[in-house]
Design a protein around this nucleic acid. Structure first.
Length: 458
RNA sequence: GGCGACAUCGCCAAGUGGUAAGGCAAGGGUCUGCAAAAUCCUUAUCCCCGGUUCGAAUCCGGGUGUCGCCUCCA
């Protein structure tokens, strides 16, 4: 299995630290608002990474944090005029709701920043004692000059950083590139007691503390979206490695951005889409298909027309599964034929190559095609098995069934029987009228050699 | 200003040296009373210029264009 490592800018063979185990950490949301569709892309993709590792027999320890104390929560609290803790609670709950709606599996550890304040203070003290951090007027900063590898992930040089740094209002910093470890609380702001007075931890520290506690000093994969490379991940490396002298993570994975009409999504451009709003209009699977049909490191343009295409494309899978009358409960562990094993291998090869989900989806279409022509239900099972790795086909049994109550179904069958008589009498006018009227209320009739069947259309 | 990414059919998108996957859309045929569904067929030489090579979408150089990071950001 090969994974692109941002640290080396190359695809590298993935070798877990501990055989059969993958320890991964993904930077989660800051709960100051509902999360947007760009966040959804990242969360969704790493959910697939996790599923794939498990599919390949790894035990995955997956940590995802929730940042529930941050400047942005404080700002939002003023805006909504409710306490910071309420903001955190409200948007954490919303986050869980949206994640569930996206059919993203729960990580093995979902840790919150505020539960690790003591550990963060201890870490900052340690950094101070070792000369990597300094206190000024109640704030504590990390001195980037003291950490010689600073910039190794983002490829930035200290000189460039200095030159590029904007005029800093913060005169407490010795070097403009120094970053905040501990921030002094203003009156009325949430705060915790510390050796430097009342304040709160900086964002970059929480991930270091949580990953160390839950995964150890060095783990396999640290991930997030590209914008986290600098400064967030760079700063994590600085803190963690300054103390441990060991690499924080073996692999650094970063997902590409989601753009709107070619531009980055931002509030100032008013091109902001919340995940929950998109979910109101589009099925979660269509959203998933839309994301996974492109490689995770490429930027992707969010576009409703393409989302609609995704809906169409997915119908392919469902219609063939319906047509062959597949039931997920049948054939728990079928013996695959050579041809089926070959397709499965193709799927694995695609995923092994830095999670090439676009190629993997193409294999799914190939399976659907063969399923259609052979009617061999083992292909249906294979489609289901591999589709699930990408997070598709949850509640498949449910979706393959009609979603009508018994009476409605009886009524439709009754109409079909009348229509059959009209057809027999060559009363096309009446037969067509029934079909047209049913279509208007969302029921599509199809005359097949085996008789008339119906399905619900949207 | 510094650093980086990308440019493949109408649209989306794989493909990193051996002669262009797949999906959506479109057109045509088969099937059908007509539809729908299904099925078959059709549709690109890869932004431009130059170079390396027996051979390049794939490597190198130069353009052009788009985007990102350098400040909070998934």
């Amino acid at each position: 299995m090969k994974i692109y490592n941002t640290m080396t800018r190359k695809k590298e063979e993935f070798i877990p630290i501990e055989q059969g185990k993958v320890k991964m950490y993904v930077c989660g949301p800051t709960v100051y608002n509902y999360f947007h569709i760009g966040n959804a892309r990242t969360f969704l993709f790493f959910d697939v990474v996790r599923r794939y590792f498990e599919f390949r027999g790894f035990e995955v320890i997956y940590v995802k944090n929730i940042t529930d104390i941050d400047d942005r929560l404080i700002e939002q609290s003023i805006k909504e005029n409710i306490p910071v803790s309420e903001i955190a609670k409200k948007y954490t709950e919303a986050y869980y709701e949206d994640i569930q709606a996206l059919e993203i599996q729960k990580p093995t550890h979902q840790s919150k920043a505020t539960e690790y304040i003591d550990e963060m203070i201890a870490l900052i003290q340690d950094l101070e004692n070792k000369g990597f951090a300094y206190e000024k007027n109640g704030d504590v900063y990390f001195s980037v000059e003291k950490f010689k590898d600073y910039g190794k992930l983002s490829g930035k040089k200290m000189e460039d950083l200095k030159a590029g740094a904007r005029v800093e209002e913060n005169l407490n910093k010795r070097n403009p590139a120094d970053f905040t470890l501990w921030k002094k609380a203003k009156p009325d702001e949430p705060n915790w007691k510390s050796p430097w007075g009342k304040g709160r931890p900086g964002w970059h520290t929480e991930c270091v503390v949580m990953s160390k506690k839950l995964l150890g000093e060095t783990f396999d994969i640290h991930a997030g979206a590209v914008d986290l490379i600098f400064p967030h991940h760079e700063n994590e490396i600085a803190q963690a490695e300054a103390i441990s002298n060991k690499p924080l993570a073996h692999f650094w994975m970063h997902g590409g951005f989601l753009n709107i009409s070619g531009e980055k999504m931002s509030k100032s451009l008013d091109n902001f889409f919340l995940t929950r709003d998109v979910l109101k209009k589009y099925d979660t699977e269509a959203i998933r298909f839309f994301f996974l049909s492109k490689h995770y490191r490429s930027p992707i343009d969010f576009n409703e027309d393409i989302l609609k295409e995704s809906v169409q494309a997915l119908k392919n899978f469902y219609s063939v599964l319906k047509d062959v009358k597949y039931l997920p409960s049948m054939n728990e562990n079928p013996e695959y034929t050579d041809a089926q094993i070959k397709l499965k291998k193709q799927f694995n090869e695609a995923m092994d190559d830095d999670f090439n989900t676009a190629k993997a989806i193409a294999v799914l279409f190939e399976i659907a095609k063969v399923l259609r022509s052979t009617n061999d239900l083992k292909y249906a099972h294979l489609l289901n098995e591999l589709g699930k790795v990408l997070g598709f086909f949850s509640n498949l049994e449910e979706k393959l069934k009609s979603s009508l109550d018994d009476v409605s179904e009886e009524l439709i069958l009754l109409l079909i029987r009348y229509r059959s008589q009209f057809k027999k009498d060559k009363n096309w006018k009446m037969a067509d009228a029934i079909r047209e009227d049913l279509k208007k209320i969302g029921i599509q009739l199809k005359d097949t050699p085996e008789g008339t069947v119906w399905e619900i259309i949207k």
